[in-house]
Design a protein around this nucleic acid. Structure first.
Lengths: 217, 217
DNA sequence: CGTATAATAGAGAGGTCTCTCTAATTAGGG
DNA sequence: CCCTAATTAGAGAGACCTCTCTATTATACG
């Protein structure tokens, strides 16, 4: 759809060469509108008509940029996951595995508190649900979306437990993904800022899981 | 709709006195069909037409028992939560709070492994989403649905930390609800039986959170 | 056996949503 | 200033879904 060239006109322009009218509703505008609707009224409220209404556009204009409603949701999902993963992977990059895991967990809850709408999207929408309606256009983007995270988790498993078998990988996944996810739900469940005890409780649980011999008390 | 009297005819009959034709599609049949569709194709696939098709019934027959599609989903949700809570509350009833918490956590993952479809429903559907379309007929059933669990959590907070303030209640909620929930997601994410390491990892995390002074390592 | 009662059966009205199609609009480049 | 290409604008076709309405069928009891 676009050439991928860097824009010279901010968000209002997507190409350099080709002529024509400047875009009034950019791809980013549409995704932002969809995100706002998800955060306010839930996933089921994200209709093309609703997005268009929020932008003050007719629904036909939305289809000029996105081939289908499912594609909008899929691209929004991907954009949001990418934005989250950026800092998450950076945090996980620390050479000392326990510190890395703790940093990643802390990043997750803080990012959630700072990006409630986007976090809501990730928590609300099940990846499995998306797979069912995943548009063909995206190819294996979904399949490879989590590859870096998976690799980082396995690397943490090796560093913490000395081997990568089903148990160590599972425990690492539990500590690095599921526990932070649970804490993120907790953040979203309350309205105000993040409770101060939450981060330390999460870190205690993460450390308990990743320490060798921490099978049980 | 029903008198609440005990059935003499199994699921095929809902009343004793009043006459008339025996039910071919009972309330339970319809809820089971809805559950099956959720488990197989996701929540969005639960249409009245789909339920009717799965039962071999015309869609009009469904409306003879349920006033609306939303009511079907709401009642299915309530039935499932109740079924889960029964054993959960029993496990949480142990006098020693840490043991009670560990029993409740263990129950959660085992119930999930044993009732994948129902667990899928609880994990897939967000309570917040339901509130939006909650039918009036149910009154405050949703509001009071979790009361017993909340009380049990607060009682655990008092027993573990000596007081019920925001932090102790939050930590108890995190250990008793969010951590088991995270582990349940892990159970559902894999196809086979529950991984043996998961329960002990979960218990380690639960114990770490609930022990006084376990703020962090 | 007849009657009262509850259930099934099935068509279809009304609404919403996705997506399409055509015409009008805007801006840059020669 | 005209030409070209991208975009907006808006109506509407077609599909699906919820829910209603009426006719028909089955069952228990007197």
């Amino acid at each position: 759809m676009t050439t991928g060239s860097v824009s010279l006109f901010g968000d209002r322009r997507t190409r350099e060469r080709d002529m024509g009218r400047a875009a009034k509703y950019t791809e980013a505008d549409i995704l932002d509108a969809a995100l706002g609707i998800v955060a306010e009224d839930g996933v089921h409220a994200v209709t093309v008509v609703a997005i268009a209404h929020r932008l003050g556009a007719p629904s036909g204009s939305i289809y000029h940029r996105f081939a289908s409603r499912d594609l909008i949701l899929a691209k929004l999902w991907i954009r949001t996951v990418r934005r989250f993963q950026e800092g998450y992977l950076a945090a996980l990059n620390h050479p000392e595995p326990i510190r890395a895991a703790r940093a990643a967990a802390a990043y997750t809850v803080n990012w959630t508190a700072d990006h409630r709408s986007e976090a809501r999207l990730l928590v609300l929408y099940r990846r499995e649900d998306l797979i069912a309606l995943w548009p063909e256009e995206l190819g294996d983007e979904l399949a490879t979306l989590n590859d870096k995270v998976h690799r980082a988790v396995l690397s943490c498993a090796r560093a913490c437990f000395g081997a990568v078998d089903e148990q160590s990988a599972g425990r690492a996944r539990f500590a690095l993904i599921d526990l932070p996810y649970a804490a993120a739900r907790q953040v979203l469940a309350t309205d105000g800022p993040m409770a101060p005890w939450l981060e330390s409780a999460l870190l205690a649980a993460v450390s308990a899981i990743l320490r060798v011999g921490g099978e049980d008390s």
